[in-house]
Computed example of a mutant assay.
Amino acid sequence: MTLSVRSRPSALAMVSALVLSLAACGGTTKESVRTQAPAPAASGAASASANPDAPIKEGLKLAFLPKQINNPYETIVDEAGIEAAKEFKAEAKEVGPSDASASSQVSYINTLAQQGQDAILIAANDPNAVCGPLRQARSKGIKVVAYDSDTSKDCRDIFINQASSEDVGRSQVRLLSELIGGEGEIAILSATANATNQNTWIEFMQDELKKPEHAKMKLVKIAYGDDDDQKSFQQTQGLLQAYPNLKGIISPTTVGVSAAARYISGSKYKGKVTLTGLGTPNQMRKFVKDGTVSKFALWNPKDLGYLASYAAAALVSGQISGGEGEKFTAGKLGERTIGAGGEIILGPPFTFDKSNIDEYDF
Rank of each mutant, 00 (worst) to 15 (best):
Q105R: 02
R34I: 12
S104I: 05
Q68K: 03
N70F: 04
A102N: 03
A42R: 04
L22N: 12
T111C: 10
K67A: 04
Y108A: 01
K61N: 12
G26L: 11
S43N: 12
Y73M: 02
L62Q: 02
A45I: 14
S104V: 04
V33T: 15
A85S: 13
T29S: 12
R34W: 15
A45Y: 15
P72C: 06
E74Y: 03
D78L: 00
K86G: 03
A119M: 04
Y108S: 06
E79I: 04
E74D: 08
E83R: 10
D78M: 02
P55S: 01
D99K: 07
A23Q: 11
D118C: 07
D78S: 02
I82S: 01
S43A: 14
K30T: 09
Q36Y: 12
S47W: 05
A37F: 10
V95R: 04
A54Y: 06
P66A: 02
I109V: 12
Q117T: 11
A92S: 09
F64A: 00
E58M: 04
I82Y: 01
D78W: 00
D53E: 10
K86V: 06
L62V: 06
E74V: 06
F64Y: 01
E83G: 14
E74A: 15
A84L: 05
F64Q: 00
I69R: 08
K61H: 13
L62K: 02
E31Y: 13
Q68Y: 10
A54T: 03
E83K: 09
F64P: 00
G81N: 01
C25E: 15
N110G: 05
K89Y: 13
D99R: 14
Q117G: 09
S21F: 13
L65Y: 00
L22E: 09
A41I: 09
G26V: 15
Q68F: 05
A92K: 05
Y108V: 02
Q117Y: 08
N71F: 12
Q105C: 02
P66V: 00
Q105W: 01
V95L: 09
I109Q: 08
D99P: 11
T35L: 09
K93N: 08
L62R: 01
S103H: 14
P52R: 03
E74Q: 07
E87F: 11
C25N: 15
A46M: 02
A80K: 01
E31P: 05
N110M: 05
N71Q: 14
A24E: 04
A113S: 14
P97T: 04
S103E: 13
D99S: 07
T75F: 00
L60E: 04
E74C: 12
R34H: 09
A85Q: 03
G59A: 11
F64K: 00
